[in-house]
Design a protein around this nucleic acid. Sequence first.
DNA 1: ACGGATTATTGAAACGTTACAATATGGCTG
DNA 2: CAGCCATATTGTAACGTTTCAATAATCCGT
Lengths: 395, 395
Amino acid sequence: MMRKYREVSQVQFFCCIVAFFCHTPGPRHGNTPRRVRPRTCPGVKPLTDRPSTPADPLLRRAGGRAKARPTLRTIAAETGLAVTTVSRALALDPQIKASTRDLVRAAADRLGYVPDRAAQRLRTGRTRVVQLVLNLDHEFLGFTHELIGGLSDALTGTGYSVTIFPDILGSDRLSSVRRIVEARLGDGVIFNRTEPFDPRVRYLLEQGFPFVSHGRTEFSTPHPWVDYDNEAFARIAVERLIARGRKRLMIVLPPANFSFAQHLRWGAVAAAKAAGISCEIPEAISLDTSAAETMAWLRQRLSQPDRPDGIIGVGEVSAMAALAAISDCGLVPGREIDVVAKRASAIFDLMRPRIDTMVEDLRLAGRSMGEMLLRAMAGEEPSRLQVLHQPLVDF
Amino acid sequence: MMRKYREVSQVQFFCCIVAFFCHTPGPRHGNTPRRVRPRTCPGVKPLTDRPSTPADPLLRRAGGRAKARPTLRTIAAETGLAVTTVSRALALDPQIKASTRDLVRAAADRLGYVPDRAAQRLRTGRTRVVQLVLNLDHEFLGFTHELIGGLSDALTGTGYSVTIFPDILGSDRLSSVRRIVEARLGDGVIFNRTEPFDPRVRYLLEQGFPFVSHGRTEFSTPHPWVDYDNEAFARIAVERLIARGRKRLMIVLPPANFSFAQHLRWGAVAAAKAAGISCEIPEAISLDTSAAETMAWLRQRLSQPDRPDGIIGVGEVSAMAALAAISDCGLVPGREIDVVAKRASAIFDLMRPRIDTMVEDLRLAGRSMGEMLLRAMAGEEPSRLQVLHQPLVDF
DNA sequence: ACGGATTATTGAAACGTTACAATATGGCTG
DNA sequence: CAGCCATATTGTAACGTTTCAATAATCCGT
């Protein structure tokens, strides 16, 4: 049972799509005949200042049914004021008389005015977009969802929106962030899984570009981050296993080039050392290792005579992989072996047997990152924008 | 153990944040003194056409370190061509001579030119953004991740980016989509969990706004959708349970106002009826029901004498809830009871005991939706943009 | 009633791009 | 060589907003 889920998907991809093709040709969208504008001599305006149905791209796209969207000019014409005045009134400029402001506000509401983001963006240079750089080939459980959820919580109502920037797998980590900065794809950027000397952090600091990272770094220059105290988690986990009399521990970890993995390693190894026991770290398990592969490796390991008697899992996958491997080897958690894990989703409530956990609230992490990015974009001191979430002792 | 995970998070939120405050005040960003431009008579240009350090918002934001971004004008000046020519050359307009095109391309690459999205958007009316409307308060396992992942797969390299539009919980479903259309927040929109007569579908069809829904509807007008054959899944699931001799089935379903839930219900009920047996549908379980609550309800139900002997789960949560409830009641899957579920993530490989599943590839669904939205935006016939993914029989 | 200060409003320009219409260039035919 | 067509390039005008500088309106104390 080493088969990877992804492979199953491939099979499905080729074999199992049924498409309904409905062959009524029907009138095609968007082939309204190109209207010919009257030729005008250079410098001479056509008589009608605005042709009744201009060759508007929006209109063309919407199949000819779009009605003109109100702009500042519309409101200006409606109220008899200048465009500038309307703009300032809506921006609540104190220079504008209160009565004028209300008048404009009323007209805007009545017409259903909503400012054009593209124009604002072009004029001000601010995109009102937060880019979230994510690698979507890993982390297939709740992580992405919770992070985005929290981020949305924090950003809803602020006028900022979250755009997903898919991190290209295998490319250098800097490229995504550099593209965002160079093409001004956002006003700020959020990314995760920092390395101790993450090139993205260095680059963004150099550029003075607002960001918040999920994970600390070891740069001396302070920068905004949100992190979870993985070292404390690992320490507590080790202590709990020791309290249950376990002596041969193992922590199921991705390779160590990420900050969080390093912290986990430090915490586990230090706590084990303090108690005079060992803590094994498997070499075979990387980020690319599928759930089934992780499980198979653990099962193999647990069937050896010197098998660990206490396993620390990080996240659902390693926890459930451990439980499955234990079960497959005929062991009983709580008897020959124990599992402690970081509870990053509600799925832990459904595992049997139940295992000892400490909470990491990723939704909260997302929320913190959103709030901090707002403050970072407002120019707040980076050293004030650092939050370390502690593991919540669960039961 | 009815405690909800969300409550745990609240506790953590208030109790367990440690923030590091570093009190070195340091120079604040963005308070460079406002430069006074020389007063000019109306109509008379100032001598220096471009002040050496203009009060550029980008520059101000970047802490004064930003160097001017090359524009079409820069390239035009560099090559001695007109801005229009440069624009068309980069757009690969066939009217432009090949040598000119290459010249421009070279200059653009050399200068690191990247077109300004805001300007393009303002001019063309196209945003190059796809809005993904998602409710981030439910669906806490892989769903969001896989959907976004697939969508990114399909959109990477097309110039489109995915923006998350958080669906406001409890509000009418139309409002999100309406905002996207009215404020032209994107060129197309994707949403999920359709209802049989989904108001969003109706509205978008009326507006002629490109979209793809995850889930079919029962409108007679064809529209683009991607769906999974939940009816077939439920039917097969029932048949498998029957083949194992089960007679009192239950399907763990959210309430029926969504299309997918209706299809599941139809499939299960019809297949059960055909075999002359019953299929129970719990009333107590809704979308808001937490994992732990679902499990508790199932445990309660399974401890009654007329308990079901075959359970159909949809998704990880109901499957694991069923397994946990079964385990808590001292039953043994495969002996007194069986579980069949829809395998929507790799976590199923880790459940013990293993359960019978059929695959739903949500990453594939996301990819299909992305591809279809591109075609919908290109004006392709809606009736050709409908894909029904079949359950892949797993083992 | 008058200059001068304050308050309120406005005109014009610009952000970077694309689309239209016009013009320059060259080659060909009669 | 005029006349014409095809090809290649360019000037100008938008898109909708914000900002600067300038103007108009109002108020105040003498």
